[in-house]
Amino acid sequence: MNKLAPFSLQGKSIFITGGSSGIGLGTCQRCLQEGARVIVADIQAPPQAVLDAGALFLEVDVTDRDRVIKAFQQAEGAVGKLHVIIHNAGKPGNGKHLTDSDEDVLDSVVDLNLYGTYYMLKYGPAHMLDGGSIINTASVAGLQQNEGFFDYSATKAAIISLTKTSAVELGMRNIRVNAVAPGPVRTPMLPPGHILNALAKNLSALGRIAEIDDLVGVYHFLASDESRYITGQTIIVDGGRLAGFRTQVLGRLAG
C-alpha cells in the first residue's frame, strides 16, 4: 500500500461554510486541488469552475438551525462521514461606537458569527469521523479591540472561546478544533477603499495586506493529518501586525 504524501487531503470529505467567496472559496479550491471531496455550504453558489471540479453545493444559511441540521444529513448522505469541517461564514458589524450602535445590526452579527459557529459545533460532530478536524475562522479583531468594531470583535472573541471549549469536549474522539485568526485580507468583505487596506502596509511587519493565498495553506495544514496533535489553538495570520511596530511607524503615530 502506498503511503499518502505529507499534508495529503486525498479522499477526505470536507464541509466548508462560506465557501463561495473570499477565504472560503480559496480554501475550497485548494481542497479540490488536493483530491478532497468538498461540500460548499453557502447562501449562494460558488463559481461554476468549483462545481465542475467536483464540489457539491448545498444552499445553507448557517443562522437557520433546521437548515444546518439538514445540510449535515445531506452531506453525510452524499460523501459519508466528514473528515473536516471548515466554518468560514461570517460578516462584519457596522463600524459604530457601542453607545451609537444599532441593536438590529448587532442581532444580525451575533446570529451569523456566534450562532452560526454554535450550530456548526453543536450539530457537526455527529456527522464526523473520529480523528477529524474542525477549523473556525476567527479574526485578530477577537484578540485586539479597535474603535468601531465592538460587535465583530465580540463575536470573533466568542468563536475563539467556543473553539477551546469544543477542543476539550471533543478530544476523547480525537477530533481537534482550532481557529484561524486573519488580519486584514483582500476579500469582498474588505472593499478597496476600506481604511484597513492602507493601514495594513504600515501596521504589519511584512508591510502589506494579506491575499487569500496567504491564508489557504494554514487551513490546508489544519485539515491534514500533519496537525494531529494541535487542538484548541488560535493561529494568527496577520503578517506580524500583533507582534509590534517598526520605529518608523511609531514615529508617525507619535507625530
Rank of each mutant, 00 (worst) to 15 (best):
G19N: 11
K12V: 13
L203K: 08
L32N: 02
R37V: 04
A179R: 13
G171F: 13
D238A: 09
K12P: 05
S108Q: 06
N178P: 08
P188E: 04
N2E: 14
G95E: 08
I134Q: 06
L114N: 05
L143M: 14
L106V: 01
C31A: 15
L162W: 12
Y123S: 03
H87C: 06
Q48Y: 06
A53K: 02
N202W: 11
Y123V: 07
A154P: 07
L190A: 06
V84K: 05
I14L: 03
S13N: 12
M172L: 13
A210Q: 01
Q10N: 08
G142A: 05
N113Q: 06
Y123L: 03
A49D: 15
E147N: 07
S166V: 10
T27V: 15
L206M: 12
T187M: 01
S224Q: 13
Y115G: 00
Q248M: 11
L9M: 09
I236W: 09
M120S: 12
I16D: 01
D102N: 15
V168P: 01
Y152N: 09
Q248I: 10
T187L: 07
V50I: 07
T247K: 09
L25M: 14
D64H: 04
Y118Q: 05
V105I: 12
R186S: 14
Y119P: 00
D61K: 11
Y119G: 03
P125A: 05
Y123D: 05
A223R: 00
S139G: 10
R246M: 09
P6M: 06
A41T: 02
I235T: 02
S166P: 06
K91I: 13
N2T: 12
L250N: 07
A200F: 08
Y119W: 12
G22P: 00
L98F: 14
V140L: 09
R246T: 14
G77P: 01
E169Y: 02
A157S: 15
A200L: 06
P188G: 03
I14K: 00
R67K: 06
T117S: 07
K91H: 05
L25T: 04
L51K: 11
T165Q: 07
P191H: 08
A141M: 14
F221K: 00
G148M: 05
Y123K: 01
I43S: 07
L206G: 01
S161E: 05
V140M: 10
I135P: 11
N2Y: 12
Y118I: 11
Q33T: 15
A158S: 02
L170R: 02
K96P: 00
E169H: 14
L196A: 13
F57V: 11
Q29M: 06
I86R: 00
A210H: 01
F72R: 06
I159H: 04
I195L: 09
S108W: 02
F72V: 05
S139T: 15
S8C: 00
V185T: 11
A254S: 15
T247R: 14
C28W: 08
T99G: 00
L170H: 04
D64M: 00
R176L: 01
L162P: 04
N94S: 12
N2G: 08
D100K: 02
E103R: 08
G132C: 10
I43W: 10
F245A: 06
D151A: 09
